[in-house]
Amino acid sequence: MQFIINGILASASFVLAGLACAIIIRGIGFFNLALGAIFTLGGYFVFSLHVKLLLPLWIAVPIAISLCAVLGMLFEAMLFSPLRAKQAGPSVLLLVSIGLYIILYGLIELIYGPQVEMIVAGGPRSSLQILGIRITTIQLVTWAVAIAACVSLSCFLKLTKGGVALRAVATDSELAAMSGIELPRIRMYASAIGCSLAAICGFMIGMDSDLSPNMGMRILFGGLVVAIAGGVDSVFGIVLAAFLLGIAQHVGVWKIGSQWQDTIAFAILLIFLLFRPQGFFGKNFKKAIL
């Protein structure tokens, strides 16, 4: 039972990662792998500001999220948008994003070193016992943040002009341009939102466990699995897929060992791509442009 509950609790970070991936894939039209480095940077920025500069968390976290959002906007404005203007297709942009990830990963390792760092000092985390099941405070906070992210994103996409424009670009970018929507601006906003969510996710994971320069790629692939299994344009589907991945991985740890966690995630990815590419509720991922 504890494994299943742990799986459900762990799925909060998968929700955040899945939302970040979905908004990036749909909003900018390709899967920007540099998002992997943003997950890592979200955690390390808080580490620098809170642990090294001794700023309180309530100041450090918004600054870290803002820095990641600015990075996302810069990627779009200075790299991907000029490449699109030179007729670069999604596959070229994907390759460029791999290069960008490698550069950022190298810089993170150069600045922070390869060793593991912690935002919260080691030792036992504060926790609650409910019906004999141990739940840490940070797990509850992560769920609260994930729910807030789902509600805010849904409201933004449905109720605001910017959200409607973003959905229009995600549905048919050429038609959106013909309707007077500025594609570069909307893509910049999408990148900023995706990177903000990634920063929140990286920070929450850093609070729960620890930070390492390569942590982002693993989170990114978890997010990708959730985004595809949930359907890249369905917030509810993403939550459901996060439950599926979280529970499957934790039951897998219990039954066959922790070294199989990534294999389980990719097995779920393959099953969905083969048999239900539209995910639980969303759009066919093949049409959503990888």
Binding site: K161, V164, A165, R167, T171, D172, E174, L175, S179, K283
Partner: peptide, 26 residues
């Protein structure tokens, strides 16, 4: 100035009203 593209193109994942909201975005 507005533009009507070829072939009945609409934002087919969005509602009729949302399509019109895009037209009236400004």
């Amino acid at each position: 100035i507005t533009f009507v593209p070829q072939g009945n193109r609409v934002f087919d994942e969005m509602s009729v009203l949302e399509n019109l909201e895009i037209g009236g975005l400004y």
